[in-house]
Structures are given as C-alpha cells and as structure tokens.
C-alpha cells in the first residue's frame, strides 16, 4: 500500500485516517530549533465532511487513500441512485444519497460536476460553484417593488428553494452560488 510521509503533506493530498479517506486542507510545520518537529494538520473526512485537527510527529507515514476527483456529467436519478458518466470513457457511476449529499439540489441533467471516487466508487459530489437554473414555482412578480430589495422564496427545477428578488417570475433563469445557496443574478436568455 502506498503511503505518504509528513514531508509530502500538502493541501489536497488524500490519506487514510482511522479507516476513512480524508483530504488534507492545511499543513503547518512546527519545530522548536533543538526539539522534536511536528506537523499540525487540518483534515476533512471525505465520508462525512467533518473537519478535524491532527498532530503528527514529523517523519511519520500515513497510508495513502485511493481517492480521485473526476469531472463527470450528471445523467439522471432513478429514485435511489444518482447516475454520472465520464465524458471521455463513457463509464458510468452511481452514487447513493450519502455520497451525493446536498449536491442533488444543484444537479441538472447534462450538467458537469466533480465526483470524488474512493476505491472506484463515488463518495462525494461537488457541483460547480455557480449554476443556472429555471424557476418552476414562485409567487407572482410585483412590478415597481425592485427598489425595496425584498425577497421571496422560489423553487428551482432541481427542487432547491432560494430567496430571489420580488420581480422574478416562473420560467425565468437565475444564477445561484451553490456554496452558499444564494441567488446571484437573473440570466437573460
């Protein structure tokens, strides 16, 4: 099994910790001049998304995790699994609700997203930072109320509900930041 020494630690490196695949977010080298060196590492558990701190003695080795991030196209949801396809090899992968998490709120068929594969199966899905989606349901638009900056809930074609300005109507396209779930702008066709 491949392993990494603390000297190789850097952001994005995938390692195994307590049986779970993890990604290194931040690595700090700490050493008293004449003392033991340590690596203080911030790590994200890729299975549950939790971030934890870990302190290693420098020079220790940890097992590498067989984790790859791949750009894939979202195809459809069969009720239980979300199906993705590698646009180059046409190889398909299915991820369950655990792997897809909240990403399903932003996934529209044909759109691309990043699928994290662990031992060849999806464990996490990251939508693009910005997506453009159609409003499928919202209260009627109120003309002339734009200056007030008021908002109303709108349901998008993927099922996500975001706060949008009052003037927007059903059928319009909006741009949303998937990291915060916030409305960015109206998209003119």
């Amino acid at each position: 099994m491949a392993s990494y020494s603390t000297n190789e630690f850097r952001g994005g490196l995938k390692i195994m910790l307590d049986g779970d695949p993890c990604s290194i977010i931040d690595n700090e080298f700490v050493k008293p001049g004449k003392g033991q060196a340590f690596n203080r590492v911030k790590i994200r558990n890729l299975k549950n998304g939790r971030v934890l701190d870990k302190t290693f003695k420098s020079g220790e080795s940890v097992e590498a995790a067989d984790v790859v991030d791949t750009e894939m196209q979202y195809l459809y949801n069969d009720g239980e699994f979300w199906h993705f396809m590698d646009p180059e090899s046409y190889e398909q992968q299915a991820g369950d609700a655990n792997a897809v998490g909240d990403a399903h709120l932003w996934l529209k068929a044909q759109d691309h997203c990043e699928v994290t594969l662990y031992n060849g199966s999806p464990i996490a899905v990251t939508p693009p930072n910005f997506v453009e989606l159609e409003i499928t349901d919202t209260d009627p638009g109120l003309k002339g109320d734009t200056a007030q900056g008021g908002t109303k809930p709108a349901t998008l074609e993927t099922g996500a509900v975001v706060k949008v300005p009052l003037f927007l109507e059903i059928g319009e396209q909006v741009k949303v930041d998937t990291r915060s779930g916030e409305y960015m702008s109206r998209v003119k066709k």
Binding site: P32, G35, Q36, F38, V41, D53, K54, T55, K57
Partner: peptide
C-alpha cells in the same frame, strides 16, 4: 487537538 502522545518521550511532550 488530534494529538496521540502515547509514543512521545518526556522531552518530546515538553517540545509539543
């Protein structure tokens, strides 16, 4: 946080 000092000796603990 996240420190496993079982195999650290006295001075290594002080360093840490």
């Amino acid at each position: 946080p996240g420190c496993e000092p079982q195999d650290l000796d006295f001075d290594q603990c002080l360093d840490l």
